[in-house]
Design a protein around this nucleic acid. Structure first.
Length: 248
DNA sequence: AAGCCCAGATAGGCTAAGAC
DNA sequence: GTCTTAGCCTATCTGGGCTT
């Protein structure tokens, strides 16, 4: 099949139908109402819904609605563990979809669409796709992904999930396969590595950005997780091949 | 099923020393 | 000045068993 990204707008009522491919619907503006056997409700900006191949679905979109529809040959791996078809997008992925809209409206090159789809599929990772806030544990997970630098004690997370500590720990492990503490560390270290690789922030600043008030504690944890010190990943390292800065 | 308790493990803060 | 590493200490987390 031909995989594609398209921008669609206001749609009154589309009767129940199905495709032999997987479809993701991602609002850029307005609200879309969707009905299928595993879900019935509305999705807005910052959310998305996955419609597996062969699933009957009907939908309508309000007058303000504008949304990206991605037709994909297979269900992306990031959705394999999802129990709900609804999901949340990271701020970075939402920004990318805005960029996609502009490019699709302005570019006439087929290669651009191909590149946009390729990158879109690469961004469909747990780092950018969070489960919908419809579940109590998902609320806590969403909090971890949105604010990894904040105080994320068990007490705080239990409050977000409206659960007791025992229930929270049990359900969290069932959902994620790991403990809350280890999950938080994973998220923080992934973010730290990205900041080191793609910004010129010093290690001390990166430590603060991911919730460590002490750089030695951050360095120790980072080295444990990745096997190399933060400085190894830092852009601030000058390699022998790096061109010398020319000043005028 | 949910909550409580507890021993052991782990994380994070602080300090100091040393490399670059 | 920036960063890493190590030692020490305290707080918090984890996982399992027990109770309600």
């Amino acid at each position: 099949m031909h995989e594609s990204l398209t921008i669609r707008a206001y749609t009154r009522n589309v009767a129940s139908h199905q495709h032999n491919f997987c479809q993701l619907v991602l609002p850029l503006n307005g609200v879309i109402k969707l009905a299928m056997h595993t879900f019935e409700g509305a999705i807005g900006v910052g959310e998305g819904i996955v419609i597996p191949a062969g699933t009957n679905h009907a939908f309508s979109a309000n007058e303000q609605a504008r949304f990206v529809v991605a037709d994909l040959a297979a269900l992306p791996a990031a959705f394999a563990r999802h129990t709900s078809p609804k999901f949340l997008l990271s701020a970075a992925l939402s920004a990318y979809l805005q960029f996609v809209e502009l490019q699709l409206q302005q570019s006439t090159l087929m290669t651009v669409e191909t590149t946009l789809i390729t990158l879109f599929k690469q961004l469909l990772t747990p780092h950018h796709i969070h489960r919908s806030a419809g579940d109590k544990i998902e609320l806590a997970i969403s909090q971890i992904h949105q604010y990894p630098e904040s105080v994320l004690s068990l007490e705080v997370l239990c409050r977000h999930a409206c659960l007791g500590v025992t229930q929270f720990k049990k359900r969290f492990r069932e959902k994620t396969g790991t403990s809350p503490g280890q999950y938080i560390t994973q998220v923080r270290m992934q973010k730290a590595r990205s900041l080191l690789q793609f910004t010129d922030m010093p290690v001390t600043r990166v430590a603060l950005e991911v919730g460590y008030n002490d750089v030695s504690a951050f360095s120790r944890r980072f080295t444990t997780v990745f096997g190399r010190s933060p400085k190894h990943f830092s852009r601030r390292i000058k390699t022998p091949d790096e061109p010398k800065k020319v000043t005028f």
